[in-house]
């Protein structure tokens, strides 16, 4: 349990193995509420795994993790949905629902929380507008470009105004201008108090931001620096 209520995420010597192969080793760091933090490192260094540990899609093999006051190591199954409702995730593999249109894909984040249909309508259109895809609400994911799909995922992750936003390679499919637009959205959300963690290869995203940058290499935390 995190005693300090200003801490959003804390890892202490957390490790994760997949089939006896270490993906993360003895990771220790903290993220304060309201911070914007970057995780970087080469492909396969463990960025996605680190994010999965936070939203409890994977469990640590050793060490200790707490998120928003929840003890992730000893989370009951019935509490996992509650944890995840505090977190918006931009999945690296998008996870859009192929047989639902863009509106319904974004709306799902709210429906799962039991929101009223009228509220859903306003919020989803607003969110789609913020990523410049208001006009695509009736389209299906397969008819969107990679970058457009990525922005739909961002809309879905932010529509419910989570306390914590985890973005896994959110600009991987975007050109520089659109990427800049997405970063602007993140900065706006962050300015309203949402804690944000962004995993990325793209140095441009954090260069000269002065934000915390966590560097991973082959599952080890190399250093925690400033962008």
């Amino acid at each position: 349990m995190t005693v300090d209520s200003s801490i959003m995420i804390s890892f202490s010597t957390a490790s994760k193995e997949y089939d006896n192969q270490t993906a993360l080793r003895d990771i220790t760091f903290m993220v304060e509420k309201g911070e914007m933090v970057f995780i970087t490192g080469p492909s396969g260094s463990g960025k996605t795994t680190l994010l999965k540990l936070i939203y409890s899609a994977e469990r640590p093999d050793s060490g200790h993790i707490s998120v928003a006051g929840w003890d992730i190591n000893n989370l009951k199954e019935s509490t996992i949905p509650l944890l995840r409702r505090h977190i918006g995730v931009v999945f690296q593999d998008f996870r859009l629902l192929a047989n639902r249109n863009i509106f319904d894909n974004v709306a799902m984040a709210l429906r799962i929380r039991g929101a009223a249909e009228r509220e859903i309508k306003t919020k989803v259109y607003e969110s789609l507008k913020s990523v410049g895809l208001r006009h695509k609400s009736d389209s299906y994911p397969r008819n969107l470009s990679g970058g457009e799909q990525q922005r739909v995922v961002i809309a879905r992750a932010t529509v419910a105004e989570p306390n914590l936003l985890l973005a896994d390679e959110p600009t991987g499919n975007l050109d520089a201008d659109t990427a800049e637009g997405v970063m602007r959205i993140f900065k706006n959300i962050n300015a309203k108090g949402t804690t944000i963690m962004i995993a990325t290869h793209n140095k441009e995203l954090y260069r000269n931001t002065g934000k915390k940058v966590i560097r991973l290499d082959s599952g080890n935390l190399v250093d925690v620096g400033k962008g």
């Binding site: 949905p81 995840r84 409702r85 995730v89 629902l97 799902m108 799962i112």
Partner: peptide, 10 residues
């Protein structure tokens, strides 16, 4: 699986 990741209850 996606529903679960988005925070859906059982």
């Amino acid at each position: 699986e996606t529903f679960k990741l988005l925070g859906a209850t059982k």
